[in-house]
Amino acid sequence: MVKPYKIPLSVLVVIYTPALDVLLIRRADATDFWQSVTGSKDRASEDFRQTAAREVREETGIDCASGTTLASGLRDWGLENVYDIYPRWQHRYAPGVTRNTEHVFGLVVPPGTPVTLNPREHTASQWLPWREAADRCFSPSNAEAILMLPKLIGVKFAA
């Protein structure tokens, strides 16, 4: 079976606790790459919120779909990043597609929320204080979203 090309519309979901510890997961296909949850729409008609909830469940086992107890913690941050697709993953997209648009969400979860990784996608997880998590991310847009976390949720911290 031929796998369809990825749609160049994706989500980035920063998962964090009220204490601003951020979940990072290590990619299976690039073991030096730590990131938040990311993923593309499965179909053009899938709305970004559905994509975010699906990707969070697929990658971490955390269920924040509509109707679940964590659904209210999934927030659209109203941010989009447009970036060049990394050459190592270009083959996943249709010929001529070189840019991706990423829609950013945050998901607040209680401390101790269990994480169950999909081993085909990720090999390890860790909770880090937000500044450390930003420093650990391989993606500049992911790091930037994490650094904006306190402002986006209305928490003041000294610089």
Rank of each mutant, 00 (worst) to 15 (best):
N100H: 03
S40I: 02
P114N: 13
C64I: 08
V115Q: 02
I153H: 01
A133K: 06
L24V: 14
C64G: 09
E59S: 12
T116L: 12
V11Q: 06
W77K: 06
D84L: 13
P150R: 10
S45M: 01
P18K: 06
Q50G: 11
A94G: 02
V2G: 00
K3I: 15
L147C: 04
G112Y: 04
R49V: 10
L20C: 09
E55D: 00
N81H: 12
R43E: 13
R136Y: 06
G73H: 10
G78M: 08
K3E: 15
S125E: 15
L12V: 09
M1S: 14
R57N: 09
D63A: 09
C137A: 14
T51Y: 02
P140D: 13
A53K: 03
V11F: 03
V14R: 02
A65V: 02
E80H: 10
G61I: 10
P110W: 10
W34H: 09
I62M: 12
P18T: 04
L12S: 14
H122F: 15
Y16E: 05
L79T: 04
N118L: 08
T113Q: 15
T116K: 14
P95R: 02
I146K: 08
Y86A: 15
Y83K: 13
V82K: 15
K3G: 00
A124Q: 13
V97A: 00
A124G: 04
P110D: 15
I85F: 09
E102W: 02
S45K: 11
C64Y: 11
A52P: 02
V155M: 09
A134L: 05
E80C: 09
A44H: 11
W34G: 06
P129R: 11
L149W: 04
T69S: 15
S125G: 08
D76A: 08
P4Y: 06
A44Y: 10
F48T: 04
Y93C: 07
R75N: 11
A44P: 00
S45R: 02
R88M: 05
Y16V: 00
P119I: 07
P111Y: 06
